[in-house]
Amino acid sequence: MKDANSDISGKSAHPNPRRATVMHCPYCASENLWPDPETDNAWECRDCRRVFSVKLHGQLPRGV
């Protein structure tokens, strides 16, 4: 059976459990983000031309 996202370009067509999903570029706030083909865990912003990655370090305990 074919994956429903396989024909869709952009973020939803590239599921990668190691690539954190972002909604906006941290530099220019653009939503024009695409997985960087040269770096497995990075995103490229096609508006400001920056390539960046996001890393989750964990969560703070409740009540902090």
Rank of each mutant, 00 (worst) to 15 (best):
L56I: 12
P15D: 12
C45E: 08
R19E: 01
R19Y: 01
E31H: 06
N5W: 04
H57P: 00
P26S: 11
H57N: 11
P15K: 08
Q59F: 06
W34N: 13
C28M: 04
W43G: 10
S6R: 15
G58L: 06
E44F: 04
W43V: 03
E31D: 11
E38I: 02
E44Q: 15
D7T: 07
S6A: 15
R18A: 08
A4T: 08
K55N: 10
P37S: 06
P35F: 05
N5T: 11
T21F: 09
T39G: 00
R62S: 14
P61V: 10
G58F: 09
D40E: 14
V51N: 12
C25G: 07
P37R: 05
Y27L: 06
F52E: 13
C48V: 02
P35C: 11
K2P: 13
A20P: 02
L56Y: 15
M1L: 08
D47R: 11
K11C: 01
G58P: 05
W34L: 09
A42D: 10
H24G: 00
C45L: 04
L56K: 14
R46I: 08
Q59S: 10
C48N: 01
G10F: 00
A13M: 01
C48F: 06
G10Q: 05
R18W: 02
C28K: 05
Y27C: 01
C25Y: 03
R18M: 05
W34M: 11
R62T: 09
D3Y: 02
V22S: 09
P61K: 13
C45G: 05
N32M: 04
D47Q: 07
C48Y: 01
G63Q: 04
K2Y: 02
S53M: 05
M23A: 12
N32I: 01
S53H: 08
L60P: 00
